[in-house]
Write a protein that binds this DNA or RNA. Structure first.
Length: 478
RNA sequence: GCCAAGGUGGCGGAGCGGCUACGCAAAUGCCUGCAGAGCAUUACCACUCCGGUUCGAAUCCGGACCUUGGCUCCA
């Protein structure tokens, strides 16, 4: 399959370093606050990347770091008079809950920075030995002038990078040198002993220490959002390629586009963010996943409630078709053709839908194009259901295919809500069903006046009835 | 200033040399006691601008313009 590489700017063929194994690393959160839906976009995208690679038969190890030692955590802890460690744990827990709620379930291992301090120190020592890093009164820095590939990922020259907005630490040799170890003591929980005295790691070093520990000096895919290209990922390349002498650090750098609001990047510093929790109060996770996957992962997307509403409706279309398919399968009792349903799918239209979907995913995870295949299949099935020109076998194949698609995208396409059986757990549900049954008897007697009155008065109570042809029907509580 | 990503129908959003997606919204029809929901069909021939290459360009090559982002906090 083809994956776009930020390094080359081109799509390249995925050939894993270790046979069938794909090592995937994605930059995780800095746990000092609730995550917002911009983060959610990135993590949903890489969840689908992992799902698809697994579906292809690769053994995927998906590693994610958790930055639990950081200036912002310390700052927030100081402001709120909290312990930095407990603050980090609290937001890490909330992050994991958010991911669970979004169906982001394919991370194999979360690695905390604070639990990899020995690996970090070890890597810094090797960088100093090789002459790529030096110590000053304030810390240990990477000497950018020694690493000639610096800037290759962000396509900038070292001279371009001389410009800076933040006043550099005066002890550094070059303004572009970045911190590996900070000689700071901000409290016992965020201070460790090192050959350079007490302190804590710089921002970039944890990722390469962690990936080297689990993957070695080189691995297959590194993901993150575009804002990490510089300086973060550039620094990772410098650190690891300098340490190991092996290039490239990763085969594929994959970067997701931003989630914008009114054309502006959503970010904590701008204050225009919606947390995942708040979003999920208004929309279900599947609608949000659908919204995210409706655009290509590298394109910017503009978040709005209208856009989410539209995604919800689009998803409903697929689910509605799944309902019709299911009802038709249930409704047509097993006949002679059931025996042959064991066979592989052979309906040409369904085979084509599957091929198109998978081809789209093969081409740099083109989920919008893959969704097109889903819609085209849905329309075709609907039409044939109307014409009663589809076999039970084909319907079963279609159902299975929708399940397969749903599995890859992490979206439930199968009908799940609002059925009478599910709502009949409680007494209210039973009472409503009783009314529906009574009303159905009235309808059979063609007592439309009374039947309509029952429906209207239930609607007033927020209970919306949807009659079905055969009677019964469904209801939903608003 | 340098680097990057974009600019496509009413809206969202693919395509990236010919077959001009897909979805939402719209119109018509079907279904229905009615309503809702649903389904089908149809219409919409759109690609920021200016040059060029080509039999043919949204797509390739020049050159503008605009938007957003990065340039040591960021998914």
């Amino acid at each position: 399959m083809l994956i776009n590489s930020t390094l080359s700017g081109k799509k390249e063929l995925l050939l894993p370093i270790h046979n069938n194994r794909v090592n995937l690393f994605v930059c995780g959160p800095t746990v000092y606050d609730n995550s917002h839906i911009g983060h959610a976009r990135t993590y949903i995208v890489f969840d689908v990347v992992a799902r698809y690679l697994k579906h292809k038969g690769y053994s995927v190890f998906y590693l994610q770091n958790v930055t639990d030692v950081d200036d912002k955590i310390i700052q927030r802890a100081t402001e709120t008079d909290a312990s930095p460690r407990l603050l980090a744990r609290k937001f890490e827990q909330k992050y994991l809950e958010d991911m669970q709620a979004l169906g982001v379930t394919n991370v194999s291992y979360y690695a905390r920075a604070s639990e990899h301090i020995p690996e970090i120190i070890n890597q810094i020592e090797r960088l100093i030995e090789k002459g790529y890093a030096y110590e000053t009164e304030t810390g240990v820095y990477f000497d950018e002038s020694r690493f000639h590939d610096f800037g290759k990922l962000s396509h900038q020259s070292v001279e371009d990078l001389e410009k800076h907005r933040i006043e550099p630490d005066p002890t550094k040799r070059n303004p572009g040198d970045f911190s590996l170890w900070k000689k700071r003591q901000d409290g016992p929980e965020v201070t460790w002993d090192s050959p350079w005295g007490k302190g804590r790691p710089g921002w970039h070093i944890e990722d390469t220490a962690i990936t080297e520990n689990y993957f070695g000096a080189q691995y297959d895919i590194h993901g993150g959002a575009m804002d990490l290209i510089f300086p973060h990922h550039e620094a990772e390349i410098a650190q690891m390629e300098a340490t190991s002498g092996k290039k490239p650090l990763v085969r594929f750098w994959m970067h997701t586009g931003f989630l914008n609001v009114n054309g502006e990047k959503m970010s904590k510093s701008l204050g225009n963010f919606t947390t995942i929790r708040d979003m999920l109060k208004k929309f279900d996770a599947d609608s949000f996943r659908f919204f995210v996957l409706s655009s290509h992962y590298r394109s910017p997307i503009d978040f709005s409630e209208d856009a989410l509403d539209q995604s919800k409706k689009s998803l409903e279309r697929i689910r509605q078709a799944a309902k019709l398919i299911e009802a038709e399968i249930e409704g047509s009792p097993s006949t002679a053709d059931v025996a042959s349903s064991e066979k592989e799918a052979n309906d040409p239209s369904i085979l084509e839908a599957r091929a198109r979907f998978l081809d789209s995913m093969e081409n740099d995870f083109n989920t919008p194009y893959a969704l097109r295949a889903v819609f085209e299949m849905v329309r075709d099935i609907n039409r044939r259901l109307n014409e009663k020109s589809i076999s039970r076998n084909a319907l079963i194949d279609a159902r299975n295919l929708l399940d397969e698609f749903g599995q890859i995208l992490g979206i439930g396409f199968s009908p799940a809500t609002g059925s009478r059986a599910e709502n009949s757990e409680d007494k209210t549900g039973k009472l409503i069903e009783l009314l529906i049954d009574m009303r159905q008897k009235l309808r059979e007697k063609k007592d439309w006046a009374l039947a309509d009155e029952i429906r209207n008065r239930l609607t007033e109570q927020g209970i919306v009835l949807e009659d079905a042809k055969t009677g019964g029907g469904k209801y939903s509580i608003r």
